[in-house]
Design a protein around this nucleic acid. Structure first.
Length: 809
RNA sequence: GCCGGGAUGGCGGAAUUGGUAGACGCGCACGACUCAAAAUCGUGUUUCCAAAAGAAGUGAGAGUUCGAUUCUCUCUCCCGGCACCA
């Protein structure tokens, strides 16, 4: 086995040869070829390549290589998402410089990535922590600042008590823990830098529509943006100058409103309580309620709590004076944070029952029994789609859903309310109180006003005289070098911004840097962008659906408006890949001791076998989870050995039979089509079928063997290259053209069709592909086994040429 | 609760403008080679029945059809997104 397929020798040899020949350097233009941009998310340099990296990079490489053989000038770049917390945490733990830790990891991972035999164009590598890169991250941030899209503001933000920094909403998991550290996230009111992604909420939503992406990805983004239309009512507060605004998306039964609730942490609350007896006690209780709610898990309890404020609104739509309650379920950061409440909302209903607030029913179901219970206020009825309105007069006895638009028009014409739209999406919090990131390129004058750092001072470099220990204030604040530099550059009393940028800012534009990685005058020249953008195929992890994928779409749209890019969307196609589980079906984890080390596997069976195995493990275009199976890997290795072993049997004097010719054409078609749709598993299966067929022959026609090698080349690039040369071919197999199939030779003339009697399969029959119904029936009647089952004059015969003959007696 | 996706052998999975369900691989069984084992090669492998014949069979139930894994309806369960979101 070793003498026919020594993967260690082959893989080393060809990786060196390819590098020498600069086989994978991609020019911006290649005569007669169309450009094609295949992108994978650049990795964080964590230190060691794991199976997930192999799945993320080596499998899409099959696609990139296929496109190249198809005749495209394919860009398949790589880089490192090199800023971020792990480096800093490692630095604290091991008392080393995060830069050193990161660059050493990058060096190590470059070597490991090279062992994949992928067609990465290393000459275009982008590294986010390199000052030649983050100079442009800073420059882009300043463009946003200039346009008012980056701003400093005070807000209730997520605080990670373990990593001691704020986090964006997108980086907090649904259970209230931090995506990275796993800590329970707290809410704090802080002044931070934000990027105004909400300004683009509508465009991010609308432009999803025509995007040919998988529906689940689009739907997840829609859910995250969370647009809802509703009405805002303005209600004067009784015995006060205050006017409060309430938002409602389900306003159809607006005449049923009997009370108002306000969030316990609502900024207007102190003002509202002014002059109310016992205001300070109420406020303290509200703050306690708010604090309780900030703890993760409060939602699960579902227990509603309320405090009466002593205030009333004068309802603008004639529902009289409505008491204002502080309610634990009211959210300060959704809508206006104040809601008009009625019997037709489950939470309001429960709340009113608990505190004895009167309710009024104006929406009823058709079912009379249920209606009786609703009218008796025994149950809450909130079905706006099917319920019938009792009032107000113009809409009485009509379905609420059908009257919705008219109610909006009615409310607006009478100036009772204003149509409005709210989003769940919040502005993107980009400040981090940590060291290892791009410094926010802002300085403050002695009066505390923020100023952009002029372009000539970029990159505004990270100081190195730093104690990284997180204390909750930014480590940069403790850098004498940075403070001195700021005063030296801008004047006495000026001080630097000391937060760094969220790494998702770095990764929002990396795909543009690959196009022009060495440019010192621009972040990415527009002429270069025009050659490559938009990305033709983007593959990555599902966890980025509402993070990187959303941020970078927003970034791109903002840059479009500034004339810095030329398209509206960065990625014309996107697919989320699945994950590889351990052999035991659980996630790979050091804790379980079930981690598969790809380096060991590569040493054992070779990179080609690992790549091909990962391609074979399941459909790549679905977000599945596939357990690693070492025996499966060995099976693939066996397949490659068989292919290698066939080389001895290849003979140019052997001619291709009609039967083999058909299989060859079928294989070309199947392998190509399935790579195109990223169903690599069935491509590999087709290759196996083809190889198994050749295996049965004592002498293999060279034409067939050469075909097998070319079709295998994207999967097993080293072995294919070796076999390509050892069977006398010139040049690299990876620049050989992808074989074309002959559409007229995909099917043999003689085909086996199924024979059914009354729809039940009873046997099969070999007939001409073009046989008529009469001929097929005659053949069936001539078959000794089938004849007995077939009546002389069947009631009905269904015949689909090449597929089926169904006789209904 | 709302939205999206899914359920096929012992396992990963294949097959849908409706046309022989289980390709390919793993596992397993048997055989060849071997003193033996490993490796390799060959044969078999949905279930029931000793086998043949036959029957059942793609989460459950109904429907449309000559024919349903594929289409329709109802339900169950699993995965993912959103969620005291008014």
């Amino acid at each position: 086995m070793a003498e026919i397929y020594d993967h260690r020798r082959l893989e080393k040899k060809w990786q060196e040869e390819w590098e020498k020949a600069r086989l994978y350097e991609t020019p911006d233009d290649l005569a007669g070829k169309e450009n094609f941009y295949a992108l994978v998310e650049y990795p964080y340099p964590s230190g060691d390549l794991h199976v997930g990296h192999w799945y993320a990079f080596s499998v899409p490489d099959i696609f990139a290589r296929y496109k190249r053989m198809q005749g495209y000038n394919v860009l398949y770049p790589i880089g490192f998402d090199a800023f971020g917390l792990p480096a800093e945490n490692a630095a604290i733990k091991h008392k080393i410089d995060p830069a050193k830790w990161t660059w050493e990891n990058i060096q190590r991972m470059r070597t490991q990535l090279r062992s994949m035999g992928a067609m990465f164009d290393w000459s275009r590598e982008a590294v986010a922590c390199d000052s030649s890169y983050y100079k442009w991250t800073q420059w882009l941030f300043l463009k946003f600042f200039e346009k008012g899209l980056a701003y400093r503001g005070k807000a209730l933000v997520n605080w990670d008590p373990v990593d001691m920094t704020v986090l964006a909403n997108e980086q907090v998991l649904p259970d209230g823990t931090a995506e990275r550290s796993g800590a329970k996230v707290e809410k704090r009111e802080l002044e931070q830098w934000f990027i105004r992604i909400t300004e683009y909420a509508d465009r991010l939503l609308e432009d999803l529509g025509p995007l040919p992406w998988p529906e689940p990805i689009k739907e997840a983004q829609r859910n995250w943006i969370g647009k809802s239309d509703g009405l805002i009512f303005s209600s004067p507060v009784k015995d006060s100058d205050l006017v409060v605004e309430t938002f409602s998306a389900h306003f159809e039964a607006f005449t049923a409103d009997t009370f108002v609730v306000i969030a316990p942490d609502h900024p207007l609350l102190p003002q509202l309580l002014e002059g109310v007896p016992g205001a300070s006690d109420i406020l303290a209780a509200a703050q306690e309620m708010a604090a309780k709610r900030r703890h993760a898990g409060y939602v699960a309890e579902k227990e509603v709590e309320g405090i009466f404020t002593g205030r009333y609104t004068v309802d603008p739509v004639g529902n009289g004076e409505l008491p204002i309650w502080i309610a634990s379920y009211a959210l300060a950061d959704y809508g206006t944070g104040i809601v008009k409440c009625s019997a037709h909302d489950e939470r309001d209903f429960v709340f009113a029952k608990k505190y004895g607030i009167p309710l009024k029913v104006t929406l009823v179901p058709e079912d009379p029994a249920l209606r009786k219970r609703v009218e008796a206020k025994e149950v809450c009825y909130s079905d706006m789609d099917n319920g019938m309105l009792l009032e107000p007069r113009p809409f009485a006895m009509r379905k609420a859903a059908l009257a919705r638009n008219e109610i909006i028009a009615y409310a607006e014409s009478k100036h009772l309310a204003k149509k409005t739209t709210t989003y769940k999406l919040h502005d993107w919090l980009v400040s981090r109180q940590r060291y290892w990131g791009a410094p926010i390129p802002v300085v403050y004058d002695p009066q505390g006003k923020a100023h952009a750092i002029p372009e000539e001072h970029l990159p505004w470099t990270l100081p190195t005289d730093i104690d990284f220990t997180p204390t909750g204030t930014a480590p940069l604040a403790r850098s004498k070098e940075l403070i001195d530099r700021t005063e030296r550059t801008f004047g006495k009393g000026w001080r630097p911004e000391t937060d760094t940028l969220d790494t998702f800012v770095d990764s929002s534009w990396y795909f543009l840097r690959y196009l022009d990685p060495k440019n010192t005058a621009e972040f990415s020249a527009i002429e270069k962008q025009k050659k490559w953008m938009p990305v033709a195929r983007y593959s990555g992890g599902a966890e980025h659906t509402t993070m990187h994928l959303l941020y970078s779409r927003f970034f791109y749209k903002a840059l479009y408006d500034m004339g810095l890019v030329t398209e509206l969307e960065p990625y014309s196609s996107r697919m989320n890949r699945g994950i590889i589980l351990a052999e035991d079906g659980r996630k790979m984890s050091k804790r379980w001791g079930n981690v598969v080390n790809p380096d060991e596997q590569v040493a054992n069976v070779g990179a080609d076998a690992v790549r091909t195995y990962l391609a074979f493990i399941g459909p790549y275009n679905e977000v599945g989870s596939y357990p690693w199976n070492t025996n499966g890997l060995i099976g693939v290795r066996r397949f490659l050995e068989r292919v290698a072993g066939l080389a001895h049997r290849a003979s140019s004097s052997e001619s291709v039979s009609e039967r083999l010719s058909i299989l060859m054409n079928q294989t070309i078609k199947k392998v190509g089509e399935d790579i195109e749709s990223m169903k690599f598993n069935t491509s590999v299966s087709a290759l196996m079928i083809f190889a198994n067929e050749l295996q049965k022959m004592s002498a293999v026609p060279s034409e067939a063997y050469s075909l097998l090698i070319r079709l295998l080349a994207p999967f097993a690039p080293h072995l294919a290259e070796e076999l390509w040369h050892s069977t006398g071919n010139e040049g690299s197999v990876h620049t050989a053209p992808w074989p074309a199939f002959n559409a007229s030779k995909l099917e043999a003339d003689a085909v086996t069709i199924g024979v059914q009697i009354a729809g039940k399969t009873r046997g099969s029959l070999t007939v001409s592909r073009n046989a008529t119904e009469k001929e097929a029936l005659l053949a069936a009647q001539g078959d000794s086994r089938l004849a007995a089952l077939i009546p002389q004059s069947p009631r009905r015969v269904v015949y689909v040429p090449g597929k089926i003959l169904n006789v209904v007696p």
